[in-house]
Amino acid sequence: MKAVVCRQYGGPDSARLEEIAPPAIRPGSVRVQVQACSASFASLLVMEGKHQNRAPLPLIPGTEVAGVVIETGEGVTQFQAGDRVIAGVQSGGYAQEVVVPQQTVFHMPEQVSHDSGAHFPTIYGTAYGALQWRADLMPGEFVLVHGAAGGSGLAAVEIAKALGATVIATVGSQAKESIVRQHGADHVINYRDTDWRDAVLGLTDGRGADVIYDPVGGDTFDTSLRCIAPDGRIIPMGFAGGRIPTVPANIVLVKNISVIGVYWGYYFGWGRHPVAPANDARLRAAYAQLFDWTIQGKLKPRTHATLPLSEFKTALRMIANREVMGRVIMKPQE
């Protein structure tokens, strides 16, 4: 099979498309023929050796795939050959085939395309888990989403709206402002020409945002602490801005706020601690809800560009240059 292989850390330029043997099937796992996989900022970090999950070399990057089950391992009960699925993988997604434990594979309705499905395993899952499970978002609350035109941001905007929130989004250009409005944001602030802290306070009658979804970190996180509502929840779910911020405990105390961590890999069993068996039903219900919202038109995964897997360097450079609104999808079978 063809796969993107990194034999040393160093980013996209250190990797190449190779012809390698397919991975062996394992008990409790399924083999998926990958029809679509997502290029992501996380993959850039993995390829540079900077991600918190430092994968051993050689490695195949990629964590989100959609495709068709072509083989099942011993003990698999939930899938059979021919099933249309999405899957979250710790690594290995940038390939024509991937072998995945059935616990991180989910049925995908016929109404959802493979290209759209490849958005769901981590970015839509993370946004749902963060806003519904961890932040306990309630209808009518104000949600502030940073980096709102990126894949993670658009997912958060759409899910917050589906949960009944009023969404304030920050972006860095007029083009991104238009896209974010199309995906449901009630208010959009261009941080390049507006003091977004004052704008958030103005939109909330001085109270601040109830929930803040922050994939940027750095100065953005610091300023968010100055426009969060009492009893508010801030979710630092990424650090695209480069600097990992620290949390002043006095602000947490005085403003009565919660800082909520969300690592979706934990729910997939990628963490250091085993996950309770009940987690499987919870995850499957979450993805069923996400796909129901998609069929209803509440979620509209935006594919910025579609490229063959052979152009993975182009896809990842687009992300590094912050050109992408939504996701870049790669097609391993082309």
Rank of each mutant, 00 (worst) to 15 (best):
V328D: 00
V76M: 05
R197H: 08
G129R: 07
A175L: 08
V275C: 06
A165R: 01
E323A: 11
I329D: 00
G49D: 09
A24Q: 14
K313M: 08
M325N: 09
G129P: 00
Q80Y: 06
Q33G: 09
D222C: 04
T246E: 15
S258F: 04
I86G: 01
F142A: 08
E71K: 12
G82I: 13
F221I: 05
T314Y: 01
K255E: 05
L316H: 15
G82H: 08
R272S: 15
D115C: 10
T220V: 15
A156L: 04
A285F: 11
S40G: 14
L144K: 03
T63V: 13
C6S: 14
Y128E: 04
G73Q: 07
V143E: 01
Y191W: 07
A36V: 09
H146W: 02
D186C: 09
V89P: 00
I329F: 04
D115K: 11
V328F: 02
T122L: 14
G28T: 13
G10R: 03
V32L: 04
V99H: 05
I329V: 15
Y94L: 12
M318F: 07
V30M: 06
P101Q: 10
L283D: 01
T126P: 02
A21C: 09
G164R: 11
S310W: 03
I168T: 03
G67W: 00
D222M: 07
T166P: 03
I86C: 06
G117A: 13
Y213L: 03
F268W: 12
L137Q: 03
P139L: 11
V68M: 12
Y263N: 14
T122P: 01
P245I: 07
P12K: 01
A185G: 09
G129W: 01
V167Y: 00
L201P: 02
R16P: 03
P22G: 01
G164C: 13
S40F: 01
A149W: 00
A165L: 11
F120K: 04
G172E: 10
L283N: 06
P274M: 11
V98W: 00
P56H: 10
R134T: 15
I60D: 00
V262L: 14
T220H: 11
R181D: 10
G92D: 04
V171E: 04
A130G: 13
D115M: 11
A229I: 06
G242W: 07
G75W: 09
Y287G: 03
E19A: 12
C37M: 04
I70L: 07
G88E: 00
D115E: 15
R327W: 07
W293Y: 13
P277R: 06
V167D: 00
L144P: 00
L144M: 12
A276R: 14
V328A: 02
S91H: 13
E97M: 08
L203M: 14
G62K: 03
M1Y: 11
Q289W: 05
H146A: 06
A315Q: 02
I212M: 08
L201N: 04
M237W: 05
S258G: 12
Y267A: 10
A285E: 15
E71G: 09
G184F: 08
I25G: 05
A21P: 12
D186S: 12
V99C: 05
A285Y: 12
G75V: 12
H119N: 10
A66G: 08
T303M: 05
A127W: 01
G151R: 03
E71P: 08
H183R: 12
V89R: 01
